[in-house]
Design a protein around this nucleic acid. Structure first.
Lengths: 210, 210
DNA sequence: CTCCCGTACGTACGCTGTACGTCTCGACAG
DNA sequence: CTGTCGAGACGTACAGCGTACGTACGGGAG
């Protein structure tokens, strides 16, 4: 058994979250998984909150933000958004942990820097770039949280709508659209909204330069 | 002191969340606020999870979803999204509780029904309406969570970026745009993205009918 | 050798949700 | 009036939580 260290603790935490969900995370549980006393963890991690920050940081730094500065900005922002969505695939149950912690470290800032520089190079003004960035952040995070089931408003996490669940008198549309509400190709839906946003922003840019 | 009942418990829970945050909510704390034994709560509420569901339901049912079926769909969608955002104003610290709980009750379904029927009346197909609905949900929820500070990725909840916080060598854009990143008119930014989405969708609709 | 410090660990405190048993009090049947 | 009964309030108890604190050990420095 190698000596206890910070990265082993973080790895155990991520593993635990993915196996049993973020609610299952406790210092005692992690220590048990590592076959170690609870308080030994505190030699390498100051507290639980910092451990979750480290989890977020680790996952974020694994995302591959490949970027081709020569490509058109529309493709670049699409790639960046899709790269971010990879988190929902590689670490679905950790997604909420990742997005709910503000990281001041390089791992947290790099995606922001990349996105902002892409938008600036595309020709957007300072305030404009920030606004557009925030719109994308909101959409991407909202999509991720729906996909992983944190904000379950009619995304079928576990077979959402059963017949008899809704009264067709009161909610005719929900009843009629139930089959579509129960199925969801997350990737296709994500790309649909993403392209919609990019298209709208490209429209604004074109309209202004003419 | 009126007799204990479910609605007084829910009101106390909401009050506690708004005063001290969702993490401060515990059955003991609520009972203390009501000057009542802890276990008395369980005569009116089956468990804590159901209590939080009731909190979500109560807040959601207070949102005023006024809708004018005669107005153009673009305005109706905008109104509905803005009505939803009211939650972030009336109950900021409860927002995460509201959006993270799937409600099968009327209070939870009504906004969905309204939105879907608006989109259907606008002429969108079944699958299309659901997709567009999901895009709006993602954007609205992402915006709300940023506004109330749950997903704090560079929205200034409490003065985000202090000078010296970022290395201008590594993150030139973040450094240059720091003033804009530190300030945020939530309403204006929300409307900016909302109009962007509506504009893009209207474009698709127009393009198809020609 | 001694000293010292970092690491591992046990114990303990105050907190959590809630299962269970008990007590009290008002309503109603006889 | 009295006996019964049900509902609601409440105390106790248990398992689990984060973590402050004290202790023990093992290896490098002097």
């Amino acid at each position: 058994m190698p000596p206890l260290n910070r990265s082993r603790i973080v790895a155990a935490a991520i593993d635990l979250i993915e196996r049993e969900g973020a609610d299952a995370v406790s210092m005692r549980r992690i220590a048990a998984d590592l076959e170690v006393g609870v308080m030994s963890l505190y030699n390498h991690v100051p507290n639980k909150s910092a451990l979750l920050d480290a989890v977020s940081e680790t996952i974020l730094s694994e995302v591959e933000f490949t970027d081709d500065p020569a490509a058109p900005w529309t493709g670049r922002v699409r790639m960046q958004a899709q790269a971010f969505r990879q988190i929902a695939h590689t670490h679905p149950r950790s997604t909420m942990v990742v997005v709910s912690r503000q990281l001041k470290s390089a791992a947290g800032m790099l995606p922001v820097e990349r996105a902002l520089s892409t938008l600036r190079e595309a020709g957007f003004g300072e305030q404009e770039a920030v606004q557009i960035f925030r719109v994308f952040i909101a959409y991407v995070i909202g999509s991720l949280l729906r996909e992983v089931g944190v904000t379950p408003t009619f995304a079928p996490v576990h077979g959402a709508i059963r017949p008899g669940d809704v009264d067709p008198e009161l909610f005719p549309e929900i009843g009629a659209l139930a089959p579509h509400l129960s199925a969801c190709d997350h990737e296709a839906e994500f790309d649909f909204g993403l392209d919609l946003l990019i298209e709208a922003i490209a429209g604004r840019l074109a309209q202004r330069t003419t």
